Amino acid sequence: MLNAISSLSTLVAALIAAITLIMGSCQFQQTQKLAQETLHYENESKAVDLYIKFNEINAKISEASEHGDNLNWRKNNLLSITEALHNITETNENWLQTVEWMISVQREFLESNSFECETYTDSFIKILEKNTNLICDKQS
């Protein structure tokens, strides 16, 4: 009789451990999914912030050109924002179209200056070359 009770309690303990493990695994998966969603929304928020900053700087360029200010730094800021936006949204087709539009806004600046492309990602270089007459020979 004692042997049967011992076996039954071992079986119950094993079932409780298995159920606990399964529940823990499900909770872990839910937590991972929520973390990925949070990261997606954070990236989306950063992308919107960068897009707004791009438009603000672009408006200031128009004002600065009326006063004869040196615009090179502001235009370089636009390019940096464009690249950052591309890097955090490159898998999103809608944002990719926005990045291409941003490059088209900067096309004259991009084509009138020489750029060292070593610091840009390969995917950003492809978009630059696709949307401008730039040819970036990335030195390794």
Rank of each mutant, 00 (worst) to 15 (best):
A84L: 10
F115R: 02
K126N: 10
S104Q: 12
K33T: 10
H67Q: 11
T38Q: 12
L71R: 04
S65A: 07
S6D: 06
Q106C: 07
C26T: 08
L21M: 13
L50K: 11
T38R: 12
L79Y: 08
E100H: 05
N43R: 14
I16E: 06
R74P: 01
T31G: 00
L34W: 05
A47G: 07
S114M: 03
A13T: 13
I57C: 01
N72R: 06
E56C: 03
Y41H: 11
Q106R: 01
I81M: 03
T121H: 10
Q36Y: 09
I57W: 05
S104P: 01
N55L: 15
E42Y: 06
L85M: 12
W101K: 12
M102H: 10
N133Y: 08
T121I: 03
W101H: 13
I88S: 07
S104E: 11
N58H: 14
L110H: 09
N92L: 00
T89V: 04
Q30D: 14
T89E: 03
E42R: 12
L78G: 03
N58V: 00
E83Q: 14
I103G: 04
Y51K: 08
G24Y: 06
E100I: 03
K126E: 15
K138E: 04
H86R: 09
N72E: 12
F124H: 05
S65Y: 11
E100P: 03
I61M: 07
L85V: 04
E42F: 05
R74I: 01
I127V: 14
R107P: 02
A18P: 05
A18W: 10
N131K: 14
S140W: 08
K53Y: 08
Q30F: 09
E56K: 11
L85R: 06
N55W: 14
N70I: 06
N43H: 13
Q139T: 15
K53S: 10
N3M: 04
E44H: 12
E100G: 00
T38C: 03
D122C: 00
G24P: 03
T10C: 01
W101D: 07
D69W: 12
Y120E: 00
Q106M: 14
I127Q: 10
Q139D: 12
N70M: 03
F124A: 00
E44K: 15
S45N: 14
I22A: 09
E56G: 00
I127D: 00
E118Q: 06
S140I: 05
K126L: 10
A64T: 02
M102D: 00
L8N: 09
E42D: 08
S9N: 09
F28S: 07
L128R: 06
W73V: 07
I5H: 08
N3P: 02
L39A: 12
H86V: 06
F109A: 02
S114R: 10
R107M: 05
L2G: 15
S7R: 13
Y41C: 00
D69Y: 13
L110I: 14
S114G: 04
E100N: 08
I19T: 08
V105I: 14
L39M: 09
L71I: 12
Y41V: 04
A4Q: 11
K126I: 02
M23I: 13
R74E: 15
I125Q: 06
L110M: 09
A4P: 01
S123T: 15
N92H: 10
